[in-house]
Design a binder for these strands. Sequence first.
DNA 1: CGTCTATTTGAATGTACTCAAAAGCGGTGG
DNA 2: CCACCGCTTTTGAGTACATTCAAATAGACG
Lengths: 193, 193
Amino acid sequence: MSQQLLIDNIQRYVQLDPNEQELLLSYFKPKKIKKKHFLFQEGEVHKNGCFVLSGCLRCYSIDKNGFEHVLQFGPAGWWVGDMHSALNGTPGILNADAIYDSEMLIIARADQEKVYNELPKVERYFRIISERSLAAFQQRMIGNLSNTALERYDSFCALYPSLIEILPQKQIASYIGVTPEFLSKMLSSPRPK
Amino acid sequence: MSQQLLIDNIQRYVQLDPNEQELLLSYFKPKKIKKKHFLFQEGEVHKNGCFVLSGCLRCYSIDKNGFEHVLQFGPAGWWVGDMHSALNGTPGILNADAIYDSEMLIIARADQEKVYNELPKVERYFRIISERSLAAFQQRMIGNLSNTALERYDSFCALYPSLIEILPQKQIASYIGVTPEFLSKMLSSPRPK
DNA sequence: CGTCTATTTGAATGTACTCAAAAGCGGTGG
DNA sequence: CCACCGCTTTTGAGTACATTCAAATAGACG
């Protein structure tokens, strides 16, 4: 039960003394889900924050033709949630399930707000990771607008080398926005230039 | 000189008394730029935050073939910046210029950090708008992965009706990720059902 | 009014998708 | 321990959405 991973993650940006750490952790509930089981599904109002301790989650939407599109992966040390649903209190369009058996820490949105008041440093932490996540999505958006499928694949490999080794190719295809068939063809054909 | 727009924007999320408002505003410098002039350019380290008071900015990247890709528009009431450059202190890949003559308020990143300590409520405001901006980019990403060009255009119209009326079609094409020629053809051909 | 930029239109092309089927791989149970 | 089942990956042929390049037209602005 390595809650320490969460504390370490937070302390990359703000320092918490032992009492503060304990208070913070008191708001989180551990949770385990097995491979292929859901953390949340579309149609639900999902207001919890989820910090992944082990395993790997996958957050994705399903389009009107039934195709899945991966918004983000959640390996250990990452946050996963449905920000749009949480902020607006409306049913979400995202699903999150486990690619491998996974452990996580869950905090209710309401408790998160409480923590902000009790430990302003934690609000700072969330401000910072929101900004970083925003910057990352902006970079990804630019990549999607600018690059070919092969370039997007290479960017993904460069950015998340550890994920390449553990993820089914199909999931990477879904993340970079191509069909699994096409990614397979891209990788097997000789590289131009 | 309607600094009030900034105050109103902040007060949608946190309340500031007159002294706090004054202190906050003291960190901002007004700036005006004329149509087609730059707020910042790729290659620069750009750490300023920029709140648009009037006019409209455009934040975009230029790919290796010389094509522009719009990351976001900045009409009155919006923030514009290069988050990735600001966070990492590295030269950015984004350009920002004015689509129309524009007025804005500028705050240096260092001053922003100071404000966070002096007025924690303002840090909360930035935490909230970062989250909302993140949620918006996530929705846009899903849309880009899931939808056809025509559907992306319709989503844009639904989400930013006021921008449709003032933006050149070419810029909207660049935002939704198609060539201006193709957008023109899409709009002139009869809609499939 | 003239120039510059944006938009439209057309024909040829290309990147990525669809559908189908075969081959590979991993887990599970008998 | 092996056989089977389900899921992923591969391969192929035909197709579609969107691009490229080119040229004509329309609009905006000084």
